[in-house]
Amino acid sequence: MIPLLKVDSLKVSIRTDDGTARVLDDVGLTLERGRILGVVGESGCGKSTLIRAIMGILPKGASVDAGHVWFEGENLLVFSEAELNGRIRSSRIGFIPQDPLLALNPVFKVGTQLLEAMRWHAPDDGTRGRERRRRHVERLVGLLRRMQVPDPETALERYPHQFSGGQRQRLLIAASLACAPTLVIADEPTTALDVTTQHQILLLLRELVGEFGLSLLFVTHDFGVVAELCDDLCVIYAGQTVEAGPVQAVLQAPAHPYTRALLACHPDRAASFVGIPGRVPSPLARPAGCQFAARCGEAEPRCREASPPQARARSGADVRCVQYA
């Protein structure tokens, strides 16, 4: 069966005043139905840009130079804005943003905002007008109750600032499910929350995937979160996928030196990245050869000459490193 989402050698560049930034330089990932794929990478490696490219909302000056985004067998990159709005957003791909306070419009009631998306994208059940809206409210209240938002009946009448951070994220998780999508994309949805709340939200997401028959694309920079939540893992470095495979396999036998370095500096796998000497190359000046070579303890001269090929490690993971070629 074809995977639900497959991103193929995607390249995205952004024109800036300082030159062209090659933000995504050959990213690939595969998300099978019913699974949770964690996308991990340091800040600035292009995770949010990847999500934006999948959803067709790239920033000004950005262009897709190569690649495909296959979603249920269709290439989303050739979709027009109207097609994406009409057939994809909300109705088939739900979105959970990073910071729930910034993502909600501060001057509109929560209900107004959540119902606006449902108005255009909720599945057609034959009802129209007031009756349709009433059903939407009903569905939202049910979802909010499921997300354990207190007072779900009155929540829709309140404004975003009247909720706590964790509650807001629960609201937006409910919103992402409101139109019954098959895929939910989440961009670091727990980074803005404290550790306890973060844990609760992860548990909730894990349950929802089974309950609603979802697939989840989960972006994070935290290996601890990946270990707790995900089935598959995709490690991105400087706009390239460097290692991808099942979470268990990768965590037990990390193949790429970058993945190894990351896990080595954090044996508890709970904290984020510090401790690898050197810096990520700027997207404005990508070196030739392997992007990680300058920081890699195992680098050989050939690493700096040509881009390493995709290879299969013994763990079963796909890895971009000359050691496995």
Partner: peptide
């Protein structure tokens, strides 16, 4: 510039509205 505009586009608000 606000994040909520990106969010509103991502969940498919119609552009004129």
């Amino acid at each position: 510039q606000n994040d909520f505009v990106f969010y509103e586009r991502a969940v498919g608000y119609r552009w004129p509205r």
